[in-house]
């Protein structure tokens, strides 16, 4: 609650500064439109903006889910079998080493102008923090718990699976939560990169569209909408991941 209030206060200060800058320097609307002009543009084209926001939101959501599921599966496979680690670790590193900006046009060529390449790009971007953080968490079971489990479970594949299920996995959930929160933070970036590479819908597309027509207030309206969407998405994932680990006491 205090965080929400302080965020609102920071936002108010930023908008005031923006206003002062636009009005004080007398900048023309095609360089820096004032907040009221942006608000007017937003209201005038609200159906258009909201439709495109819906498209981007869906891309973020589906890309996030796909990336998160792949990341979780990758980390679990690495934890369950040592040979899988040798195969998957390079995949994990490669997924992060290749700039997604470079891949985006290729994905558009392969998958078309629709939603598929955006979802794929978002999934790749989100895959890494989720897989890396969760794999780390799965490797770092507190030694006291791991030893106690070893003494209780005995040996064998079944014992290892049950140890994973009852000890290793829950112990890694806080790390998974961290990975998901990081992934949620970059979901909007990934969706917009995908749209910039080629799209006919979405907030990234709308920004390019407005920019090309020098409708800078509309572009700003799309930008602000994207900002709100990104924050809302991150907040939602934050809320859900904290619900996932209720035993972690926040010190904030």
């Amino acid at each position: 609650m205090r965080l929400a209030l302080s965020s609102l206060a920071v936002l108010a200060v930023l908008i005031a500064a923006w206003w002062a800058l636009a009005a004080g320097l007398g900048l023309p609307a095609y360089i820096l439109p004032a907040p009221d002009a942006v608000a007017a543009a937003w209201w005038e084209r609200r159906d258009f903006i909201l439709h495109n926001a819906g498209v981007t939101a869906l891309e973020m959501l589906l890309g996030f889910c796909a990336g998160a599921v792949l990341g979780v599966l990758c980390a679990l496979t690495m934890a369950a079998a040592a040979p899988a680690r040798l195969v998957l670790r390079p995949v994990l590193i490669a997924s992060q080493a290749i700039p997604v900006f470079a891949l985006a046009p290729l994905f558009v060529v392969w998958m078309g102008y629709g939603m598929a390449p955006k979802i794929a790009i978002a999934a790749i971007v989100i895959f890494f923090p989720v897989a890396a953080a969760f794999a780390d968490g799965l490797r770092r079971t507190p030694p006291a718990l791991a030893e106690a489990a070893r003494l209780m479970a005995g040996s064998g594949f079944g014992a290892r699976l049950r140890t994973l299920r009852f000890v290793v996995l829950p112990a890694a959930l806080p790390a998974l939560g961290t990975g998901l929160r990081v992934g949620a933070g970059v979901a909007a970036i990934a969706a917009v990169i995908g749209e910039w590479a080629g799209a006919s819908e979405g907030l990234g597309y709308l920004m390019l569209w407005a920019n090309a027509r020098t409708q800078i207030p509309l572009m700003f309206a799309a930008l602000v909408t994207l900002f709100v969407l990104a924050i809302a998405f991150a907040a939602l994932v934050d809320f859900l991941t904290r619900r996932m680990t209720p035993w972690i006491s926040e010190t904030d």
């Binding site: 006291a144 106690a148 209780m152 479970a153 049950r162 009852f166 000890v167 112990a171």
Partner: peptide, 29 residues
């Protein structure tokens, strides 16, 4: 068979008290 109890008592922080007590049974299936 041995049971080992250490200073940091290896209780699962996410599991309720009863679940902690029956953890061994769960791990042995």
């Amino acid at each position: 068979a041995v049971a080992l109890m250490t200073q940091d008592d290896a209780l699962l922080p996410w599991a309720r008290v009863v679940e902690n007590v029956v953890l061994g049974a769960r791990l042995r299936g």
